[in-house]
Amino acid sequence: MAKVTLWSGLSAAAGGNTTLEVTAKDIRELFRVLAEQYPGLAPFIAQGIAVSIDGVIYRDTWSKELPDNAEIFLLPRIAGG
């Protein structure tokens, strides 16, 4: 079970929830579960979301495993210069 925190723009698409409890073994499963529970999240997931796992930011690399009790933040993909 992982505690997933959403950024504010995303929480509006998840029924106003800012944190969710999700059981998932990797990023792919995390996205699948989130999209099933909150279809409004699907377009954001399709567009690309960054995932912070215990402080390390990953792009949407599906195979990245989620450790038990990991602290997970979903963040917008960031532009750089």
Binding site: T5, W7, S52, G55, V56, I57, E71, F73, L75
Partner: peptide, 14 residues
């Protein structure tokens, strides 16, 4: 901020 601080944008710093 230091290692373990929750950043203002969300994640905890390494």
């Amino acid at each position: 901020a230091r290692e373990g601080t929750q950043s203002s944008y969300g994640p905890v710093y390494g």
